[in-house]
Design a binder for these strands. Sequence first.
RNA 1: GCGAAAGUGGCGAAAUUGGUAGACGCACAGGCUUCAGGUGCCUGCGACCGCAAGGUUGUGGGGGUUCGAGUCCCCCCUUUCGCACCA
Length: 889
Amino acid sequence: MSDTPAPSGSSREPAAPEPAGYQPAAVEAAARRYWSEIGAFEVVEDPSRPKFYCLSMLPYPSGALHMGHVRNYTIGDVISRYQRMTGKNVVQPMGWDAFGLPAENAAIKNKTAPGKWTRANIEHMRVQLQMMGYAIDWTRELATCDPDYYVHEQRVFVRLLAKGMAYRKSSVVNWDPVDQTVLANEQVVDGRGWRSGALVEKREIPQWFLKITDYAQELLDGLDALPGWPEPVKTMQRNWIGRSEGLELAFDVEGTDDRLSVFTTRPDTLMGATFLSIAGEHPLALRAAAADPDLAAFLADLKRGGVSEAELETQVKRGRDTGLRAIHPITGEALPIYVASFVLMSYGTGAVMAVPGHDQRDWELAKAKDLPIRLVIVPDELRHAPPDAVEKLRRRVTEEGAFTERGWLVSSGQYDGMDFQQALDALATRFEAEGRGARRVNYRLRDWGVSRQRYWGCPIPVIHCAACGAVPVPEDQLPVVLPEDVAFLGVQSPIKADPDWRRTLCPRCGGPAERETDTFDTFMESSWYYARYTSPGASDMVDARVDHWLPVDQYIGGIEHAILHLLYFRFYHKLLRDMGVVKGDEPATNLLTQGMVVAETFYREDASGEREWINPADVDIERDERGRILRASARSDGGRVSVGGIEKMAKSKNNGVDPQSMVDKYGADTVRLFSMFAAPPEQSLEWSEAGVEGMARFLRRLWAQVERHMAGAAAPALDVASLTAGQKTLRRQLHETIQKVGDDYGRRHSFNTAIAALMELLNHVSKSDDASPNGRALRQEALEAIVLLLNPITPHASHALRQRLGHAETLLEDVPFPRPDAAALERDAVTLAVQVNGKLRGTIEAAVDASREALEAMALAEPHVAVLLQGKTVRKVIVVPGKIVNIVV
RNA sequence: GCGAAAGUGGCGAAAUUGGUAGACGCACAGGCUUCAGGUGCCUGCGACCGCAAGGUUGUGGGGGUUCGAGUCCCCCCUUUCGCACCA
């Protein structure tokens, strides 16, 4: 700073430096300073008020806030501030989902330790969240990479081990033979390791699992008790859990004492079974392969190939006869047992009865292997049809493909003529009596594999001892702390490379032992953070405060978490409930899934056809008089660019817009306002800087209205009794808006229409130029209401404008949300539409209490209507009071 | 293939219970203010016909229910998302 005095007589010294209009930077800094000084959003339990727990999914600290975060946390903030204005004790916490692979990638690239990188990102992103003005209780902040946090996760895990809810088994992973490491699915590109380029192999290694399948039925049933969750999310979870009912049935294997169990959802097709298919990993297949080198080669071949679903999809159905024969439990026929590529060991029993006539996969294998195809089910219309009609279907089933619908049994001996249910009941009863089978429910949901062969995660608290096996780390020795001061030499996990960290003593026998070097799936940390937020500083996972705050009243996050996170979140809550940690069956009563943030893409192609993507911020667009795009050009050199279509904001298309730059340019309130206005929360939101400017314009106009109003004579108290008709109308519009905005915030979560209603109201207010005492009083009432109604969305501007309207500085969240005045909502006249034969022909003004007869007479007398009715006979008149009169001629 | 959601002006969208389609905003056009404008204000803006008044038509396509359909029912098309050999 310089000591030099300012030159005298400088024009930089205006007499009264009244700031010109709306200055978002200053307004926002002042509001945030005030909130921070009074600790506005720090909350404690308060039994005298209803609580409201508003939770947004915690961010991964990737480095900088992106528009998806802004949208998510603005929705949460709007709901939080609105609920607090209605008198609730609102908690809105925030934390960091801090473990994960990107930190390892960054560590390799930048040669920094993942912990250091992550913590630096958190510092930066916290400042950015604060810049957005979110009403967060920062005293509850947590980072999942802190030992203070994950110690509780380790403690829960060893208790789950003791309860048998966690167990270890071998499971297939992607193995990179060059980097000597396990790869996540997304690190496998076209069957090759993303860094090494080596062909990825399937490899079985022992891993830890949580028994989520024990809760499959409860997780399914619980969805019905969640009316506040979006239907699409519940449908996806139902499909994921994938409950199916059927019959488990054992076939005798010829010449042995073995039995081969299959699961089927179509026991009605049993008489059409012509062979059996088993998975390549099935014990029977392995045993048969021991004596059959060709079969062994086939099994080895099946094992090869990617784990990815996309690869499985395109695979042809392959099979190979094991030489074994199974005895059909009803006909006694000997059926060949095949190993089939499409049978999954992990579902059902790993074996199926093959009914080529009524299952497309079985049909394809039967065709390839020339196995018999039998028709045993016919549709309704063929139930009593003559034989030649059935013959047609039989030919179709033989030549073209399976008939997979349910129907009526034929060629099934004593079961002929039964429908699906009758056949199921008859067969189930029979096989239950014979001890050969039983009704069975299967789920496609698998147990949750929680092991990751990565460094940057929560260490799995287990010690491997040559004598005692896998031994849980005793609770008093927790946490097992992940060393953070590590160097990343290659891809391999530093704790796997470090013999000193691994080396320890067995807690059971005291002998030399090694620590587990796998870490938990990061979904583990995000499955219980909502509970920890309620009890900051608790020495256990939670304390008594948890019962005050749970369940979460409103959860907000991306639809991409519809299945995995939200299912684990519900599962973990049930685990914690059964351990006595939390109460209630579900963690969150209401869920809002917000849509993506998308933007236009622009590109240029070079000679080789390579696309250079240009950020929308660097493109100028010319339009014709209809508003259609004529040409787009790069601002840097004026060169023409192509429009590439609207895509999710992403680095690869260079169409991301940095929230920081938008806040710097327009202020946080404008950015918040645009992200709430441009689309309903569940839909995708198209970023448009022109749209952002429109929002800035609205805030400037509101500011200008308040300034103009306050520059005039002081507003007296409103004298309701002496309002003119025009004033009554404006006041009614005001109170209708109050009613609508409250409903839009609280019930509908329809923030875009709330803003539209406020804009409309401001348009009405600015058009009225009423300087009478009641006119000024009404404008004061309206402007005060607009400022409060807008507060959840634009809290900084509202904070400043409230003071400009003559109030002392205060926390607006503690000012009650405006309520509509019932008297102001009353109308004495309404406009009704008049239709002739359903077509709008005119409108009439009528008293609210006008009789049907009076309305009918007025409608018939309406000039346009009267002209149209000349020479016609009125057949019927429908009168809907307050809405419409329809004249039928 | 299976499941779900959606399709409305040049664009983002609104229409909450079957009752005046297109609120609100963007873009565009015309005008005013300004030394100037990436400012502010006013006006217009679904399409077609018309100077206008007004008329006709219009919510992906086809059918239906109804006095009345963007909304309900049936068939079809398109898009997005999720799952994808689950017996």
